[in-house]
């Protein structure tokens, strides 16, 4: 079903237009990469605070509330440009092992944010300026690891090592959802 949707997407004039445009694709991808500085950059600084290794003079509550708008701004830019990049090359991206791993990492990061928001930070008033609890450190470490992987896997989507036409192993064909007969 998902695959049918992706195939349909590839036939839309929007997809073809983005794919064939001289500048639009490059501008979109550059914006995507530069927005990393805003999104992962601000997240990393907050995570270093939640790890208790830096910015210890800044209350945790202030660190979260004052940086969040910028992280959200980065997120909006990344999702918008990311969706456009997928739209430009839907079929290949859908089958990319790196894209799939990237999605898993984003999912892990999202669950981590949910755990932090609904469980970990609830009693943050108690450790706003004191030593950070273990649960905060764990969330920060998971966040740094997951977003780091998102950057690395995202960059690797550009490489064709595991494209449908260059893989043979049944496991890889299964993981990428590539058609078995062509592989």
């Amino acid at each position: 079903m998902l695959e049918g949707l992706v195939n349909k997407l590839a036939e839309t004039p929007w997809s073809i237009g983005l794919h064939e445009s001289l500048y639009m694709y490059a501008i979109t991808e550059s914006t995507h990469v530069i927005s990393i500085m805003l999104f992962v950059g601000t997240i990393a600084m907050v995570d270093f605070r939640l790890l208790g290794v830096s910015y210890r003079q800044v209350p945790v509550s202030q660190m979260l509330s004052r940086m969040l708008p910028w992280t959200v701004a980065g997120f909006v830019l990344l999702v918008t440009t990311g969706a456009m990049l997928f739209l430009a090359i839907p079929i290949r991206t859908y089958h990319s092992i790196w894209f799939r791993l990237k999605c898993i990492m984003i999912l892990i990061a999202a669950v981590n944010i949910a755990v932090f928001t609904f469980k970990v930070e609830r009693d943050k008033a108690a450790w706003d300026l004191g030593p950070v609890p273990r649960k905060s450190k764990i969330c920060a470490a998971v966040s740094l690891g997951a977003w780091g992987c998102v950057i690395v896997f995202g960059r690797l989507i550009a490489y064709n090592w595991f494209d449908c036409d260059s893989i043979n192993s049944p496991t890889l064909l299964e993981l990428t959802g590539c058609p078995q007969d062509i592989g």
């Binding site: 950059g41 990393a44 004052r66």
Partner: peptide, 24 residues
Amino acid sequence: LLALALLGGSVLIIALSVLGLGLK
């Protein structure tokens, strides 16, 4: 790219505070 993210974060956290748009 990972280092780029780190540079962005460390410059922005200072810059936003200077501009009155970030940490107090």
